[in-house]
């Protein structure tokens, strides 16, 4: 997929899916991301946590240009993320995203939601796109809902469709932006189960979530953000059992305390 003239491939970056160097971002006067350095290898599963307003969502939204960073370098899948529309399009093809509020297209059926991007962006023939869509809908365990519309599904089902829709583009990297925050407790499990399966299949994932059980079970690395900075990152066992900074300790005591 990657055309050599657009890709800024570096020798040591072969295994790197994401690399962020000295990234800064402002919303008006507000400095929302402060000097972020992060690199994610292929197959890594990262959980990003932190208090609200700490820039977690903004961080992952910068990776597919839903937000524009003003300073620093980001490259995804070896493609430099800059103002070049071609590069942005190419990165978006390789990066799937799942949103807090699902963002399914309500005027299209579940199947059409999943087929849309392969057909229009990847130029996949219709029949093949349908096959791919059904494959991934089966994988998230709702093939029988394919002909329904998003409004007819429960929140958990909608979120699984959203995951299937992202997977239909067969991305290299999946971004999850608080995928379970808008769900009823009983539906959180079905979505998390789907995500665990995805992780077990070796998908590279960056997941903003407050589900610490999920983080413990799935993540290779947990990143803690506060006030726009990466305050701490560690393997989940060490992160939860032996947090280093005071801010992390405070945060963990608050979310694990009840």
């Amino acid at each position: 997929m990657t055309q050599p003239q657009n890709a800024v491939t570096q020798a040591d970056d072969h295994n790197k899916v994401v690399s962020m160097r000295n990234v800064n971002k402002w919303f008006g006067q507000f400095h929302v991301l402060r000097d972020i350095n992060l690199s994610v290898d292929k197959g890594e599963r990262i959980v990003v946590c932190g208090p609200s307003g700490s820039g977690k969502s903004t961080l992952i939204r910068c990776l597919n240009r839903l937000e524009k960073h003003q300073d620093g370098d980001i490259s995804v899948h070896g493609i430099e993320l800059n103002n070049d529309v071609k590069n942005i399009d190419e990165i978006r093809r390789e990066v799937g995203m799942v949103f807090q509020h699902f963002n399914l297209f309500p005027h299209l059926s579940i199947l059409e939601n999943c087929m849309l991007a392969p057909i229009w962006v990847r130029k996949t023939p219709r029949a093949e796109a349908e096959e791919i869509a059904m494959h991934f809908l089966t994988r998230v365990k709702i093939p029988e809902q394919a002909r329904k519309y998003p409004g007819q599904l429960s929140g958990g089902q909608q979120q699984r469709v959203a995951i299937a829709r992202a997977l239909c583009m067969q991305p290299q990297l999946m971004l999850f932006d608080e995928p379970t925050s808008a769900l009823d407790p009983e539906m959180i499990k079905e979505v998390l189960d789907t995500m665990v399966e995805l992780a077990d299949d070796g998908m590279t994932m960056i997941c903003v979530t407050h589900e610490m059980g999920f983080a413990r079970r799935v993540a290779n690395r947990v990143i803690f953000m506060d006030e726009g900075q990466i305050v701490e990152q560690n393997e989940p066992e060490a992160f939860f059992n032996n947090p280093q900074s005071d801010r992390t300790k405070l945060f963990l005591s608050q979310i694990l305390g009840h």
Partner: peptide
């Protein structure tokens, strides 16, 4: 909703595609 624009952007649709289809 803003989410519709973002959903369309995130799957890689171009501006005109997302306008026309979504």
């Amino acid at each position: 909703d803003k989410g519709q624009y973002e959903g369309a952007d995130a799957v890689g649709l171009s501006y005109w595609q997302s306008m026309r289809l979504i």
